[in-house]
Simulated assay, not measured.
Amino acid sequence: MPEESWKPPLVMVAVDIVILTLRASKLHVLLVERGIEPYLGELALPGGFLNNTEEDVLAAAHRELREEANLHGTRPHLEQLGAYGTPGRDPRGRIISVAYLAIAPSLPEPVAGTDAAGACWEPVAGILSGGMKLAFDHHQILADGVERARAKLEYTSLATAFCGETFTISELQQVYEAVWGVELDLRNFYRKVQGVAGFIAPVSTDRRTTKGRPARLFRAGGRTVLYPPLVRPNPLVADEEEQ
């Protein structure tokens, strides 16, 4: 084909964000109710097109965090998850979505963006089990985001991104249980966490959580890669491994 006859394909770029947080000790994801076609009235991950040809993809992700999750003045963990460009994934045309994974603790009630009719936090477990349908290919993007978080909890300090500035060992354990979907023995978990140098660091102030002794508080340590890793148990044999 002569070079002068070649025309670049018309491709649009969007960003979609898997925003995870813990609510009532369960893993939740932010969803929006679409206020426009396609998929009018259906639930989807928050996201949108780049504003213009000058907007960077990462800048667009930060903008969507502000608009869709009301994350003003908050610095969530944010990392690129992947690119999704299967033909036909969007009925509006050839659209490639760059997906991001965002994690932060104690996120506020969501505020619907400009093209959304509503926004809500939904438990991840019910969605991934097939109990809820998402627009576009967002079920796959969500599944990929959750698996990324599950895997990184094993060998990085990502779990502390779900916690506040200070936290107890019990609260950190709740993160692992919620994301992995298993129950862990507290004594065994405490021993494993304490065995990873630099993962968490004690702080001087204790918080009284019960009528008994105050719970010891910790903060994120300086280490980002965990060694030895905290290996994710198989849910079917988790009880046996924790004994």
Rank of each mutant, 00 (worst) to 15 (best):
L30E: 01
L101K: 00
L134T: 00
R148A: 14
A24H: 12
P9I: 11
E154Q: 14
N52E: 05
N70E: 11
A24T: 03
V111A: 10
T160Q: 11
E147F: 03
T74P: 00
A135C: 04
K26P: 00
P46R: 07
G222E: 13
R150E: 00
P8S: 15
G85Q: 02
Y176S: 11
R148G: 03
I141H: 04
D56E: 13
M132T: 09
V225N: 01
T210R: 13
V11Y: 10
V237G: 03
T224F: 13
E147S: 03
A119P: 01
S129A: 15
R223W: 08
A99D: 00
V98Q: 11
R94T: 06
Y227M: 09
L20A: 00
D90Y: 10
L65C: 08
G47L: 02
E109H: 10
A116K: 03
Y155F: 15
P233G: 09
P46H: 03
A197L: 08
E165L: 14
R63H: 05
G145K: 04
P108W: 05
D144A: 15
F49D: 00
I169C: 12
E171W: 15
G195L: 10
R150M: 08
V237A: 05
P123D: 06
H138A: 05
R89G: 13
D16P: 01
G85E: 06
A119M: 01
E64I: 12
I17F: 02
E4S: 14
G221M: 06
P46E: 05
A24C: 12
I103H: 04
I127V: 07
L186A: 09
I96A: 14
R63L: 06
L10C: 08
D115L: 15
S170K: 14
E241C: 09
P9L: 15
Y155M: 13
S97I: 09
S25K: 15
V11H: 07
D16C: 13
P38F: 02
V124T: 00
G181T: 06
V29D: 04
G181M: 02
V29P: 07
M132C: 07
E183C: 14
H77R: 07
A24Y: 08
P9Q: 12
T166P: 01
K211L: 12
G113N: 02
